[in-house]
Amino acid sequence: MVLDTKKNDNLNDVEELARNNILVTTFEKLWNWGRSWSFWPLNYGCNCCPIEVMAAGAGRFDQARFGYEVVRAVPRQADLLTVAGPITLKMKPAIERVWAQMPEPKWVIAMGNCAISGGPFKDGYSVLPGVDSIIPVDVYIPGCPVRPEALFHGMLELKKKVQQGEYRRS
């Protein structure tokens, strides 16, 4: 194990140690592989994007090809929160709670322009300017509504991100 002696910062040393630790990094790679191939989504949405989510799960587009079809109704067993709709002030506590109930590691996809920024409803008195104002978002998928293929693209991008290990752990 070679440590960079020039770096005096302790934190860097720890990171360096972690990076050079063969055992842990290999396991980490395996875990990330497993995680990236099995996002079990929990879907939130209002009207048009969820229709596309349903289409994505159905025969023509088939989310199951990537192994992401196990849609859980329970946040406790979900890995991926798909927010597909504008967040109103009334739904804000629900989203926050569901997010808090999901076990780590967890990810969020903001699907559609409503979820990203409030979309056409951005001037509404009760609409939040995007999900990222309450919970951290990993992938933004613009569209109105998002095509099922675009949703897959977002999920595959997230897969790349997870496989590289670049995700936060709160």
Binding site: I116, Y140, I141, G143, E149, H153, E157
Partner: peptide
């Protein structure tokens, strides 16, 4: 082109 997903909101 519909593959527009990005990791940052600024990129949109």
């Amino acid at each position: 082109n519909f593959e527009l997903s990005s990791f940052k909101r600024e990129d949109i």
